[in-house]
Amino acid sequence: MSFQITKGLFKFDFTDQHAILGVPLDAEFNDIRKRYMKIVRRLHSDTCPFENQAEKDKANEFLSKVVNPAYNKFSKESDRKEYGLLVDMIAKRTVKEQKTLQLESEAAKQLTTAKDFQEAYKKTLAELAEKQYESIEHSLDIIAQISEINMVYLLRKEQKGPIASQPQQASKATTTATSAPPPKAPAAPPAKSQDSFVEQACRRVEGLMSTKNYAKAILELKEALNRDPKHSKSHALLGMCYLEQKQATMAKIEINKALALNPQEPTALEAKKKLEQSTAQPATTAKGQKRGAKPQAKAGKAAADNKKTDKKVGKKTDPPKSEGFFGGFFGGLFGGSKKK
């Protein structure tokens, strides 16, 4: 069974976990957990109400492959924060790309002009969620509808006003282009918008890096690489971010990917040079300390040897304390060893 969805926020190469669980984008974790438990009771093979075994198997598969991974994104606080940042970035994209957005569900179209869009959003979503898992055959379609109203909600929240029916106008423009041959040229912009999005993401990342906001920069780059996995500069910038966060292994992986795609990528070459310097510096310092220690040891040993020599010389050359004039005279006259 295929679980692919291409409507709503899913068209941005983004998995709309809120739509899968049928909860609002601003839902608290406790509400998400309650909703998840309700879906589990509906889809689990031990508790699902479906009589047909084939339907039970589909329900159980949907639970394990779609619903459980969605809930896992919210089960940890760190994952929730990261996912929240991704939703914020998607919201900004909806504003930039709203002219190319096309809405299919009537609920999403009505939400574009609803006076109190937040109240209308929650009401519409609750109605869709109520019948979301009544039949597995229709579950994907309802998830797509919820994701469409999520997209409109984010767009209106960012714009702080009605959308002025732009998505519907885009749909009409497509119909006109089909009937009249000349306007076929506008079919090219989607590819350009994809390229321009990645380039714009790189420029945003460079700004984030200048303020040392590497965590958000990494999220931006991961989103860009989802759109274009072979973008060498994105890999290079990601490697640079990892390098700044002292993650040398991850940095090396991304830098190598960038150079494999484009051996002359300037950012990748610069990042590689910094990586080599950072890994070589500790080794050089350690060697310098060892080399510096040897002359000191030798100097210390030489000083100790000199002291010993001075003591020996002192013993041989110093005259006996009892020697005077006669001692020196008779000692020289009758010199020799004393008899015992």
Rank of each mutant, 00 (worst) to 15 (best):
D228I: 00
R42G: 11
I90R: 04
Q159H: 03
T15F: 10
Q166I: 15
K307I: 05
A108T: 03
R35V: 07
A215I: 03
I146T: 07
N226M: 08
D228W: 01
T112N: 04
Q200F: 11
G332N: 13
A177P: 01
G335M: 01
T47M: 09
H44W: 13
R156E: 06
R203H: 11
P190R: 13
L155N: 03
V205Y: 05
A19R: 04
N60C: 03
L154Q: 03
Q247K: 15
S2P: 12
V205M: 08
T124S: 14
A27N: 13
K172D: 14
Q169G: 11
I218Y: 02
R291F: 05
P162I: 07
V95M: 11
L221N: 04
D79Y: 09
Q17M: 09
S75V: 14
E127R: 15
Y36K: 10
Q168V: 05
N72K: 13
K115R: 12
N213L: 07
K92C: 02
M209T: 04
G239D: 08
L111W: 02
S193G: 03
N226F: 02
S179P: 01
E134R: 14
L259A: 07
H231T: 05
K290P: 00
A114Q: 07
K312Q: 11
I5A: 06
T94L: 13
